[in-house]
């Protein structure tokens, strides 16, 4: 019986959608636009998160030595002592210069023609961010600073932290924006469903008169809202995928572009996008019929 009722709801909802397709299109478009923006933001945030995680994995502590100084056994031991250290690589002053010339060829002149090596030798300490205890890490850096042959200690964690902060801001702004857009879509769907219910008020009155229960009378409208949301979600996903496919080959290979167009939404994200659309449509229909006798 329930299955038959659901089939009837779907049939009526599809008929309603087809009959009043112009106003349904308003709801579907609103949901599609909202979810397109939401999906794009989710994709951006996901790619940025991955990028930061990669950087975090590659983060290093670089201990720059004073000119002419060398890492003695005590410094080497201090560097390797903490459990989070996964490796120490010595970079001589000459290697540092060669790297600079390789990475920045346009300004390579800056490090050429000096009597002695212009860049300091360093020790690059790789570490596992998962193992790091922040307070112990800071204490360890302080101890490294105290060695007389150490000129400067550069900690990648600072800018990774800044990036993570930026990511949090993007997340909060994105979630707020998407919430506002989805709410707007819910209200639009609610208005469209209310309008449809108003158009069919005579029929609805007849259904009630002959003994139709509220669920049976409202069911097709709930399904109509659900379908509008589903279509909106699917349209947003399709639009997003199309935009992604068109954009990726035309994007220059920079890290910013990589962050924007790195990976498309994963399967879970795609399902979630369409599900949010369907739920927004359903919520709109429930909200529109909640307070009044349709």
């Amino acid at each position: 019986m329930l299955l038959r009722a659901v089939i009837y709801f779907f049939r009526e909802a599809v008929l309603n959608l087809a009959r009043s397709w112009k106003i349904s299109l308003v709801a579907v478009s609103t949901i599609a636009v909202s979810l397109f923006i939401g999906g794009a933001l989710a994709m951006l945030a996901g790619n940025l998160r991955r990028l930061v995680a990669d950087w975090q994995r590659e983060a290093k502590v670089i201990v720059y030595l004073r000119p002419g100084a060398a890492a003695d056994g005590a410094l080497q031991a201090a560097l390797r002592q903490p459990p989070w250290v996964t490796g120490v690589t010595a970079v001589s002053a000459a290697e540092a210069r060669q790297r600079f010339e390789r990475y920045f060829p346009s300004v390579a002149e800056l490090v050429r023609g000096w009597g002695e090596e212009p860049l300091p030798a360093s020790l690059e300490v790789a570490f596992d961010p998962e193992q790091v205890d922040a307070r112990a890490f800071d204490g360890w850096l302080q101890r490294l600073h105290a060695f007389p042959q150490v000129g400067m200690v550069d900690d990648d964690r600072d800018w990774v932290r800044e990036l993570q902060g930026m990511l949090r801001v993007i997340g909060v702004v994105g979630v707020s924006l998407v919430a506002a857009l989805v709410l707007g879509a819910v209200f639009t769907t609610a208005s469209v469903i209310r309008l449809t219910a108003y158009l069919y008020r005579d029929e609805i009155g007849i259904m009630r008169l002959v003994g139709g229960t509220e669920l049976f009378v409202r069911g097709p409208f709930y399904v109509e809202g659900f379908l509008q949301g589903l279509l909106g979600g699917a349209a947003a996903l399709g639009g997003l995928f199309l935009t992604y496919r068109l954009l990726v080959p035309r994007t220059p290979q920079t890290w910013v572009a990589g962050a924007l167009t790195g990976d498309f939404l994963d399967a879970r994200g795609q399902v979630l996008l369409v599900a949010v659309g369907a739920l927004a449509g359903l919520a709109g229909a429930v909200a529109s019929l909640r307070r009044e006798e349709v």
Binding site: R208, G211, T213
Partner: peptide, 15 residues
């Protein structure tokens, strides 16, 4: 609705 199912209603304008 259950009350109405025990009654049949006919109107002037057919509805």
């Amino acid at each position: 609705p259950f009350l109405r199912r025990t009654m049949g209603v006919v109107f002037q304008d057919f509805r």
